[in-house]
């Protein structure tokens, strides 16, 4: 007799859509952070929860196949990115981690503010996603 597998079709169908919405919202949070609630930390947590929701609805194997990401690596890359923005300002002769911003005119969008804080925030975003996912996946995979 095969083990009974609960029928979670409804959950899976819903999650497919919900996860995309959460992803989109998390990116919004990440990018909007400078001027409205949000930022790398919150965005990262939200992305992580989106991925986690996928893991909950589907099994680990298929999600790991769909998202073949080494999250330990993401931690390292994020740290390097955050450090890198600091070092760039150092090379230019400013104190470590000096941030800059300016306003640019883009077609269609109009005036857009670009800051060096954004790559820094993306680095933090990556570390948060990487750390949460690495810890949780390891605990999940572990079977003793």
């Amino acid at each position: 007799m095969k083990p009974i597998r609960p029928n979670d079709m409804m959950l899976q169908v819903t999650i497919r859509i919900v996860a995309i919405i959460i992803f989109a919202f998390s990116f919004y949070l990440l990018l909007a952070g400078h001027n409205s609630p949000g930022g790398g930390f919150i965005g990262g947590l939200m992305t992580a929860s989106a991925i986690l929701v996928l893991y909950l609805a589907f099994d680990v194997k298929s999600i790991s196949k769909a998202l073949p990401i080494n999250f330990e690596m993401v931690i390292g890359l994020g740290l390097l990115l955050a450090l890198g923005t600091g070092i760039v300002s150092m090379i230019l002769g400013f104190p470590f981690l000096t941030q800059f911003f300016d306003y640019f005119q883009f077609p269609v969008y109009g005036e857009v503010e670009l800051t060096t804080a954004l790559p820094f925030d993306i680095g933090i975003y990556m570390v948060v996603v990487g750390a949460v996912m690495a810890i949780i996946l390891r605990i999940e995979e572990d079977d003793i």
């Binding site: 952070g33 400078h34 001027n35 409205s36 609630p37 949000g38 930022g39 790398g40 930390f41 994020g78 740290l79 955050a82 450090l83 600091g86 470590f96 981690l97 941030q99 911003f101 300016d102 503010e113 800051t115 804080a117 820094f120 925030d121 680095g123 933090i124 570390v127 948060v128």
Partner: peptide
């Protein structure tokens, strides 16, 4: 250049703290 004080503190005024935290 940001209106969200919390985020500005995190990434700019106290950037080093944030870096160490992550």
């Amino acid at each position: 250049g940001g209106y969200n004080i919390v985020n500005v503190i995190l990434v700019d005024f106290r950037g080093l703290d944030t870096l160490m935290e992550v």
